[in-house]
Design a protein around this nucleic acid. Structure first.
Lengths: 345, 345
DNA sequence: AGACGCTATGTAACCGGTTGCACAGAGACG
DNA sequence: CGTCTCTGTGCAACCGGTTACATAGCGTCT
């Protein structure tokens, strides 16, 4: 019952109700240190009684600061992003920013449109795993502070995963278990993250003297992983490193359907650690700490917005292998066929 | 290279460059039918050359229409929400709205704060599974159009799942298979959705003459489900209906750890169908079509914003049981113990 | 006592659009 | 040919805040 009318009062109404000027009301909420404590107290009381809340739109127009940030992701439904979004949102909230969320549906041109459309409403952007070409990203970055996640463009502030460390650990772990032939089931070729992971895997395998075959999963999804299984079984690998956990999970399902047991007949390593603990058996994977990436990106953006400076930080988040239950010593399989041997353990 | 400076031009600059008034430029973008085609064409050309984009903040201030909507969810990381968010975002985008995303972290007071803070920046709200008390929801609804998802408050527009139908099918399916004692592993007690589901389960079980025990999972999470397993095994039930897929997955993992096989020793039914196809074995579950709920909510909000009318629609989305591989005929188990009998099939 | 400085508050311009109203010019009509 | 209507455009107020600058009041110092 604070406001009988369903309209929120304006600064003018509060001013006249409190017997002060509009400027004083404004200062009560934005720069109270300029006023006597008695004044702010009185104005606050009146404002509370009327249900006044400073209008963020008007504030944004006159100050040029929106108090919002935008977070653009290629696919919210990809389990990599929710923890990232959640952490980003929480940090933004602490810093007093509201968050615009954009889903580009993996389409570069939709990223471009989203960025253009909401530019005026936000103080800065966070682009997670952008598919947009470098030139366009730079254009947007020239207008507003912009932080990249999972994309490395020289001169722009960015938060990256230390893919090399994690993948190297994973391959070393497999080598130690005795695997000699391994597969990398890749993600979208246009993805920078995929290129990084694949390159790291190739390098690590070479260093350890393992053979590595790359198998494409057209889409970085559960279905994509499942669809890659037939080709996977046509090879003689005993272990698979997947582009991400989702693909790994798809592979596991595909293998299970064909009676290939994990890890007995095939070891599996995922990437991201976003649903690793939820699979059965629990997935061995490279933890990418995506929540931390989201939080760091917001912090970085906050610093830039505070300082006005434009440091081109390059934050690298460490990754590490988390060994769970989908990796074990290899076991001889019928060459070229998925069927496990009938022999007892 | 459209703009050498990294500032976007204002309507005034476009106006003088095109040799027209600011009003004409404004109308070029908002009401072109008032101008001659030649004029709009000329102004558009100039605007494009300068890289002009109408400032949404200024527009919002003068029109009172923000062109944004807010979507508040209790936990982005809960797999129920990403498909919903994604669908909502896609529909909003089609209708020309940008989306504010708020995560309340399951806390009613954070919902309240979020709603208050961004009210001025949006034309309407969508509240998914709100934890906020009814009175406060009504206060916010009085200020701006507000659509509820998964919460039934008389007089407010809302999108609901037909919980009864799905749960009834699920219980009937279990009864048909021969189960007599079943458990319902519940979600958060404060959740309206949980109350609905539990009530529906009790009703259906009673009608079919089954006994039903309710077991609480403190949190609607994988861990919550896992934690409920010991209590579950203390009972003599042969089938379990879980609050949602996540809890079901947790239960499956908890059972697997203890050597209880699904569905041989325990049948499991989930709810939502958000990750059902990704578990192994694939989960029998009630499909709630959460993406559709998100889309419908946005459509409803769009209609209200268009018409200015305030219909208190009550959209009910049908649900249905999807039988996959976690339900089968019951098998006698040692009373009160989780261990399956050694006897052969 | 007068000049000075400091502090608290008010005045008014401004942010970048939109829109009611005025008005000019063209065509229609008596 | 004058008036009337209609159409396209401009003028200026307005949305709800912020903020540079002006000013009033008061204590302090010489």
């Amino acid at each position: 019952m604070t406001t009988p009318k369903n309209r929120v009062p304006t600064i003018t109404e509060v001013a006249s109700a409190a017997g002060v000027s509009r400027a004083t009301v404004s200062r009560t909420f934005s720069r109270p240190e300029l006023l006597t404590p008695e004044t702010t107290e009185r104005v606050r009381a009146v404002a509370a009684r009327l249900g006044y809340v400073p209008n963020q739109v008007a504030r944004a127009l006159s100050t040029g600061r929106a108090g919002n940030i935008a977070l653009i992701v290629p696919d919210i439904a990809n389990p990599f992003f929710p923890p990232l979004i959640r952490a980003a949102q929480a940090r933004a909230d602490e810093a007093g920013y509201a968050v615009f969320l954009g889903d580009s549906d993996e389409k570069p041109e939709r990223e471009d449109i989203l960025l253009t459309k909401i530019a005026a409403q936000v103080d800065g952007f966070i682009l997670a795993s952008p598919r947009l070409d470098e030139q366009r990203v730079r254009v947007h970055a020239a207008r507003r502070p912009l932080i990249l996640i999972n994309r490395d463009i020289e001169g722009l502030p960015r938060v990256l995963m230390d893919v090399d460390a994690g993948i190297t650990q994973a391959i070393a772990h497999l080598a130690e278990l005795g695997h000699r032939h391994i597969a990398y089931v890749s993600g979208p070729p246009a993805s920078w993250a995929n290129q990084q992971r694949q390159k790291a895997a190739v390098k690590a395998a070479k260093r350890l003297g393992l053979t590595l075959v790359a198998i494409p999963a057209n889409h970085p999804t559960y279905q994509g992983g499942q669809a890659a299984v037939p080709e996977l079984l046509r090879t003689d690998v005993t272990a698979t490193v997947a582009f991400d956990d989702l693909v790994a999970q798809g592979i596991m399902a595909g293998l299970a359907e064909r009676g290939v047991q994990v890890p007995r007949d095939m070891s599996i390593v995922g990437f991201d650690d976003v649903l690793a603990a939820r699979t059965y058996p629990p997935l061995t994977t490279v933890a990418a700490h995506c929540a931390e990436a989201g939080a760091r990106a917001v912090e970085l953006l906050g610093e830039i917005l505070q300082s006005g400076r434009h440091p081109t930080a390059r934050v690298v988040i460490p990754t590490e292998l988390v060994v769970r239950a989908t990796t074990s010593q290899p076991r001889r399989r019928q060459a070229g066929r998925g069927k496990p041997l009938a022999a007892a353990s």
